[in-house]
Amino acid sequence: MINITNLSKSFGKLSVLENLDLEIKEGGIFAILGPNGSGKTTLIKCLLGMVIPDKGTISINDKSILKKWDYRNELNYLPQIANFPANLSVNELIDMVKDLRPKTANETELIAHFGLEPFLKKKLGHLSGGTKQKVNIVLTFMFDSQLIILDEPTTGLDPVSLIHLKELIRREKEKGKTILITSHIMSFVDDTADEIVFLLDGKIYFKGSVSQLKERTKETNLENAIAKLITE
């Protein structure tokens, strides 16, 4: 599905990604983990075409995506910070994103799933952080795309919504979607992820299943396993 070879990116003197190679197969949930500043967001933004790599290639379904934009129609992205134009209402924002993408959307079910009906006419500037994140999730999942990228999806969510989100992710996975997630909440990763891609200093330090990781670090708890991976 996704093929990244020799990807490098530096911001000024700071080198964030160094000759990174990564292959992600179709179907399943991949957690991209790593300490702060390890290049997770940069990697995702390279995939989205928001950050332009210094060198290397990225292809999705064997087609290079560098300098292209139409491939994003087959991709759903949940940004880390949900900050929308304060003047718009939730309904208007949803309509706008629908208008901007050629695909058909099925937002009604998702709105019900997260109980957003009472907020539809409210201005986005008046919503709480968690409600904004729910709107953000609806915007991401309302299109049917093969690739879904979630950057810190759990931010600001209450436990009930978190359960709803996990359920949603599970359903998408059952449809055979490829889902990339970054998160610092290890219990969430442990619950959802099939495979872990661990980034350290701009390189892939570990790639494999959760159980493989636990085996390698001889830890039973994912949080401790990751901590051991960082310090070893």
């Binding site: 989205l48 928001m50 934009w69 491939y71 129609n73 992205y77 940004p79």
Partner: peptide
């Protein structure tokens, strides 16, 4: 932030 949302759309 909103521009970033747009940048992730097929535009």
């Amino acid at each position: 932030e909103f521009t970033e949302l747009l940048l992730a759309q097929p535009i």
